[in-house]
Design a protein around this nucleic acid. Structure first.
Lengths: 229, 229
DNA sequence: CGGCGGTGAAGACATACTGTCTCGTAAAAT
DNA sequence: ATTTTACGAGACAGTATGTCTTCACCGCCG
């Protein structure tokens, strides 16, 4: 029956398949959480408020997420995944390695920049002990790392530092875009960051990291540890 | 009297001045908070636990801090202030501008690196809406900015980007040291970051930021907006 | 020398959040 | 049409929160 008491609270509740419904509720909860974080900060976000803002019962929310931390983590994961898609499309727009790298880094910087308007929300810090790197963030790191490795083979990026370390450097440096005022400033930041990647003059080359050390520095890399040199 | 019931719970309670006592309790609470954050993460840190870990009554803790957020903010402030002192001393160890800049940046990177072992705790994100920049962090930014401006005048750092923006770039980029494995990797990161600061080849120069725009980009700078160019 | 204000610490209380359990109800299967 | 399955909401004990009131200790002054 369509006019039941439930369809009023949650539009098109059972119309689609159950799994789709669960997904919809989950996303709604994540949206509500984002709004609450934006409004009152992270520490005051509570299961009760999220359930209320989502329009579902509090106990129901516990069927989707075990606690607030899980919700924040899921929200963060969704954010990063969206970013990842935007970066992947940005990568396709250029064809030569340097252009791809530039496009991806600029896209990332612009994302960080416009996230600033939404208030500085970097929940990476409060995930329990900052343990496991959020999976999507790992993919993001790998994306940049591979792009850098490509440019290294092409010769447009220094080869005296492991690509994984350079990816960390890029992502952190570009996160500074969140504090910047204008888009032009963001582009300057990208230029500066890219300047750090360029092959240095012979005198400035880093003491050529020993191979085992460079391998160890690839902290997250569980796979291919092929790095030229 | 000295043998009173209180002197057992809180050694040298009234021996020194009251203000010193308050300061001691405050610091003890901050230490306890740091330990709890390290142990159970940030979200599970509560006024009750802090009070218990500090060894004082819960209501007493409310006389020192209004809520958990204030405690975390105070703790973060104390941390950054300590770092600031270490950077200030590091600055004195070199005499020419480039050496000072290198020393300070490396010191900052090493601090970020060893903080990693203590677990990634970057509470800047959860301060209410991420509003006012923690004062000490502002001083840290100014320290680096002035050092960069000095090197710009000396010619060893690019002058096509405002010093304030470069300082943001440096601090964010070096925060990547927290994810690095070895000290050697940290030194490589410093080298890469410094490479981004060096005057670029003419072709790579950024489109020469318009003056008003560069001034606006100095988001926090309330004072001297003199920048050569 | 002994009572007197000042200050800090701790117990008490009403309220809100948490986590779990049980029950009602709608959709789907037989 | 009845049974099965799963979702949603209210209920309940335990805990955190924020405030108020009370108690103990210090220095002061009569």
């Amino acid at each position: 029956m369509f006019g039941s008491a439930y369809t009023k609270q949650m539009p098109k509740l059972w119309n689609e398949t159950i799994d789709a419904h669960r997904r919809a509720v989950r996303d709604a909860a994540l949206d509500a959480t984002a709004a609450l974080v934006a409004e009152h900060g992270m520490l005051s976000v509570t299961m009760s408020r999220i359930a209320e803002a989502t329009g579902i019962g509090r106990a129901t929310l516990y069927k989707y997420f075990p606690d607030v931390e899980a919700i924040l983590a899921a929200w963060h994961e969704r954010q990063v995944t969206e970013h990842l898609e935007r970066l992947s499309t940005a990568r396709e727009r250029a064809d030569h390695p340097a252009g791809r790298l530039h496009a991806v880094l600029e896209a990332y910087a612009l994302i960080s920049h416009q996230r600033h308007g939404h208030h500085g929300t970097e929940p990476a810090a409060l995930l329990h002990q900052g343990r496991h790197i959020s999976q999507a963030h790992q993919q993001l790191h790998d994306l940049v790392r591979d792009l850098i490795a490509e440019s290294v083979r092409h010769g447009s990026v220094r080869d005296d530092v492991a690509a994984g370390e350079l990816a960390d450097y890029c992502l952190h440096a570009l996160s500074a875009a969140g504090a910047l005022a204008s888009e032009a400033a963001v582009r300057r930041l990208v230029a500066v960051t890219l300047a750090g990647l360029r092959p240095p003059a012979e005198a400035d080359t880093v003491p050529a990291a020993a191979d085992e050390e460079a391998a160890a520095a690839e902290q997250h890399a569980h796979r291919h540890r092929r790095h030229a040199h």
